[in-house]
């Protein structure tokens, strides 16, 4: 399926589907609540903001792990049964459905706080140096806003292509079951070279973000210890590489393997 076809599918959803309206209203209200929450958090001190940022960030990390686990079903079982069952569970389980809103709110909070902190940081140095800072620190830590914004763009496109299509698209059912064939949609998208390339690049940047973020969250929460901090820093590298590599391998395998047919 081409990107154009995907988009036309999406356009049709907006106009016709009643469910879509309902969900947009839900998300609109939720966005509003998150923004009001962020607004009061913006009055808080720098440390409180960072603590909220860290807690939300770690929560987002949990989501990434669950997401990766479900995606990997597609690799373990090319017949798509396992993946479709996983997707069906995620789409119907009431706890997961509730968490979906918490997750959405978490992203908004993380993004609003990240941008606010960054703007305050830029304002704290109105005149810049001619010779910019050079010091032995993690290079990734200096580009959190840049990697973050690219992740955000990726998430938006990803959300449109999968989440909205899954909720409102006419996805054929899987064999004789009542489950939708989500696996087929994923395979169709991952047979598009442009999308795969974009996906891989975005996930490499996610790895950069997480490489600094995971261990940074511990420091923000006041956890720094001569015995454990070196371990947490190592774990941060492992977590970022495993998550990014895991997510990257799935489209690559689907793209190059003839076992997956769109």
């Amino acid at each position: 399926m081409s990107a154009k076809k995907l988009n036309s599918k999406f356009a049709h959803l907006i106009t016709k589907d009643d469910n879509f309206k309902k969900l947009s209203i839900n998300f609109f209200i939720f966005t509003k609540i998150s923004i009001i929450m962020s607004n009061s958090i913006l009055q808080y001190s720098s440390i409180t903001k960072k603590i909220v940022m860290a807690l939300v960030g770690l929560f987002l990390l949990m989501f990434l792990l669950v997401h990766l686990a479900v995606n990997s079903f597609l690799i373990f079982d090319p017949s798509r049964t396992l993946f479709n069952e996983g997707a069906h569970f995620m789409a119907t389980n009431p706890i997961i459905q509730t968490m979906q809103y918490v997750l959405f709110g978490g992203f908004i909070l993380h993004i609003i706080l990240g941008i606010t902190l960054q703007i305050q940081n830029w304002m704290a140095r109105p005149v810049r140096y001619k010779m910019e800072g050079w010091s032995h620190t993690s290079p990734f830590s200096k580009f959190m806003i840049h990697t973050g914004i690219i992740i955000f763009i990726f998430l938006t496109i990803h959300f449109i292509n999968f989440f909205l299509v899954a909720k409102f698209g006419e996805i054929p059912s899987f064999g004789d079951t009542e489950m939708e064939d989500m696996g087929l949609l994923v395979i169709q998208v991952f047979k598009m070279p442009g999308y795969v390339a974009f996906y891989v690049i975005a996930l490499i940047l996610l790895a950069f973000h997480l490489h600094h973020a995971f261990q940074s969250a511990f420091q923000s929460l006041g956890m720094n210890h001569s015995k454990y901090t070196p371990f947490i820093k190592g774990l941060s590298t492992v977590v970022s590489v495993v998550i990014a590599l895991g997510f990257i391998l799935i489209p690559l395998v689907i793209f190059f393997s003839s076992r997956y047919q769109a």
Binding site: L117, T137, S138, S216
Partner: peptide, 18 residues
């Protein structure tokens, strides 16, 4: 001290370690 630090216009900490 933290309130004063924020009021004076210093930036936030990103834990870069510089």
């Amino acid at each position: 001290m933290v309130t004063k630090m924020d009021d004076l216009g210093f930036g936030n900490c990103t834990n870069t370690g510089a």
